[in-house]
Design a protein around this nucleic acid. Structure first.
Length: 618
RNA sequence: CGGGGAGUGGCCUAGCGGUUCAGGGCACCUGACUGGGGGUCAGGGGAUCGCCGGUUCGAAUCCGGCCUCCCCGACCA
């Protein structure tokens, strides 16, 4: 799986990069001599890395703040160091992995025609006002002031900036589709960072944006990028599945996330056990129970002393939860909203927020409910608007429409109403799907499937934005008929730090990291034992320099440590190939070669070692 | 922001009012032995016990306030 992506293999896009670069360079660079010189220079410049002088210590015990495997290993292997909550430095080994990871992403973005740019972190707030997100972006933009009191946002994402680039640089359909990407640091004033690199306040993101002449074009760009993402995760030995997603504050319609399923993930994903339906719980559809038709009965009040919850109510009346009507009060941008949903269902706040056009939502407490003039625990949509002291919007889940004769609150303590029916007894301002799907629910896509709930790390997200930003920012172009059109936009993100963490989550064992070859900081880890013996030191040094001359990334453990320490560190650091140089092996004119993924080692004659390793490590 | 937990040399921790209380392990420095899975011995450097204030003859230890970090929840790559 990993092997065929090695440099110099049949992966054309990878192999051709240097040449592509020369083609685009000035004529002075086109001479063959210059090209050769540069290639040679590149070879000789292979990084020097001896563990004796490496800026990082391995830790036998993980710092207590780390809980997830990736967080522990990142710290124990000396890949990262925390500066503040959600803010980390990358140490040399960690940064090399990051750069290799970026390179994998870069190659696949280039392969679908992406053009790499670099956009600013500092963005004038006026640009955000233009898109309308200055007020709506949540959590709020991190804004700094310069010495002239001008306000600049620290970019949490770059839709505005890239659209500004497009509107200035592209005027014709002939130059489209335009695919622009960058790998750039982002700042988000996250409410809570977590899990080491899983959720950060400052992080590195690959964000690509596509501008197409029409929606068919958008579909193509979207599909191409989607396929590129699949390739990327493949090259990283990282299992990932696409799921339907909510588009959140980025906006747009279609949106999918790539999830790596793992217990430590912070998202809940619902996956059908029969068809290929999978969705983030925020977005997931499910088939709700359909109640049998009944004749509508007259409303009657029942005494329900002290009953405040649906479960208690259902038990008291000896009915199922699905025969009750649940009332939940939210404050949406501070305004009271009454949410009605059938008692067997839960409110999905993301769906509710979308129904309310992205309002800032929170549950109201009993005191606030009382202040509006209503009774928490026994609230009802029936007659609600008449008794409320303030205007209250009513949002209803579609489940209430065809569910006859429900039991609802009576808007006074210790009483409920039987036989409440939608339309006849009450109406909502908005009726839509706002219910939360969960484990065991029926799949809405297929017949007979049920949904499994799994946890996942969101490692990529693709959106069909449409014309949300291009319209607001006036990103127009001329089509073949000379007509002015608004560009159709897509955007595609990968959280690079988080992706690194996910790769480690998926590629480690009890002894440490097991790097996939594609992003291992070094391909080969030389372990030299008994360095006080000249023949060992000479052989190890020779192997080290010859491999580097052959263009192999080599990490050399030149410390005078005991074997156990060195092997343990080699396992922890997790480079794909370990070479042991020792008196024992040298007696047989050999070195010992072991893959990180395998338990056993093999002896390789000293004379063949360089060739063999160079072949394996590409 | 709500709920829970924790702050003792770089890391893990003991101690939880005085009495070798500032201790142990890892890591680090020096030396010796050792040399294929975190070895042993000897010596050594490094901490105003998160910060501020209070109680007390006496505070790492008790009280109050603050700060920071971690976990769960509301948001996101």
């Amino acid at each position: 799986m990993r092997a065929h992506y090695r440099l110099g293999s049949n992966r054309t896009e990878a192999a051709y990069y240097p040449m592509r670069w020369f083609v685009g360079a000035s004529s002075f660079l086109r001479s063959r001599e210059t090209a050769l010189a540069m290639q040679q220079h590149r070879t000789y410049a292979r990084i020097e890395m001896r563990i004796s002088t490496l800026i990082a210590n391995t830790l036998r015990e993980a710092p207590s703040e780390a809980e997830t495997p990736s967080h522990k290993l990142l710290l124990r292997a000396g890949l990262i160091q925390q500066l503040a909550a959600g803010i980390y430095s990358f140490l040399p080994l960690g940064w090399r992995a990051m750069r290799k990871l970026e390179q994998v992403i870069r190659e696949e973005m280039d392969a679908v025609g992406g053009q790499e740019v670099h956009m600013p972190v500092l963005q004038p707030v006026e640009l955000w006002a233009e898109s309308g997100r200055l007020e709506t972006y949540i959590p709020p933009l991190l804004i700094v002031k310069d010495r002239r009191e001008r306000e600049l946002a620290l970019g949490p994402t770059h839709e505005e900036v890239v659209t500004d680039i497009f509107r200035q640089q592209v005027q014709s359909y002939r130059n489209m589709p335009a695919l622009v990407y960058q790998i750039q640091v982002k700042f988000r004033d996250e409410v809570r960072s977590r899990g080491g690199l899983i959720r950060l306040r400052e992080f590195i993101m690959k964000d690509m944006y596509s501008f197409d002449a029409d929606f068919e074009g958008l579909d193509k760009s979207y599909d191409a990028t989607f396929a590129a993402y699949v390739k990327i995760f493949d090259r990283l030995s990282l299992p990932a599945i696409p799921v339907d997603a909510d588009s959140g504050p980025i906006g747009g319609k279609d949106s999918q996330e790539f999830m790596h399923l793992t217990e430590v993930g912070e998202n809940t994903v619902l996956i059908c056990n029969k068809c290929d339906y999978a969705a983030n719980a925020e977005k997931a559809d499910h088939r709700k129970l359909v109640l049998p038709k009944e004749d509508l009965a007259d409303i009657e009040e029942v005494a329900t002393q002290g009953i405040k919850t649906i479960d208690a109510l259902a038990e008291f009346l000896k009915i199922g939860n699905e025969k009750t009507l649940k009332a939940v009060f939210y404050a949406a941008d501070g305004e009271p909203v009454f949410v009605a949903i059938r008692g067997d269902l839960e409110v999905n706040e993301t769906k509710l927020r979308n129904a309310l056009d992205g309002a800032d939502l929170r549950l109201m407490d009993d005191k606030e409910v009382g202040a509006v003039g209503l009774v928490a625990g026994s609230a009802s949509p029936v007659g609600l608007k008449d008794m409320a002291k303030r205007p209250v919007r009513i949002v209803a889940d579609e489940s209430v429409q065809n569910s006859p004769n429900l039991v609802a609150g009576a808007n006074k303590a210790d009483a409920h109403l039987r036989n409440v029916n939608y339309e006849r007894d009450w109406q909502a301002d908005i009726v839509t799907d706002i219910s939360e799907a969960g484990e065991g629910d029926a799949c809405a896509r297929c017949g007979g499937g049920t949904l499994d709930a799994k946890r996942g790390i969101e490692i990529g997200h693709v959106f069909k934005l449409g014309t949300v930003y291009t319209e607001k920012l006036g990103a127009k172009f001329l089509d073949a008929d000379g007509q002015q059109q608004v560009a159709v936009m897509g955007c595609y993100g990968i959280g690079v730090d988080r992706l690194l963490a996910a790769v480690i989550e998926a590629n480690h064992d009890e002894n440490g990291i097991v790097w996939p070859e594609s992003i291992a900081p070094f391909a080969v880890h030389i372990v030299a034992l008994n360095l006080d013996q000249d023949e060992v030191r000479d052989a190890a040094e020779r192997l080290y320099s010859e491999l580097r001359e052959r263009g192999v990334d080599v990490l050399y453990d030149d410390r005078e440590e005991r074997p156990g320490v060195k092997f343990a560190d080699a396992d922890l650091l997790g480079m794909p190939l370990r070479v042991t140089v020792s008196p024992r092996n040298l007696k047989e004119d050999a070195v010992e070669l072991k893959r990180r993924t395998e338990a056993d080692a093999e002896l390789v004659p000293l004379s063949e070692a360089v060739d063999k390793l160079a072949g394996m490590a590409g």
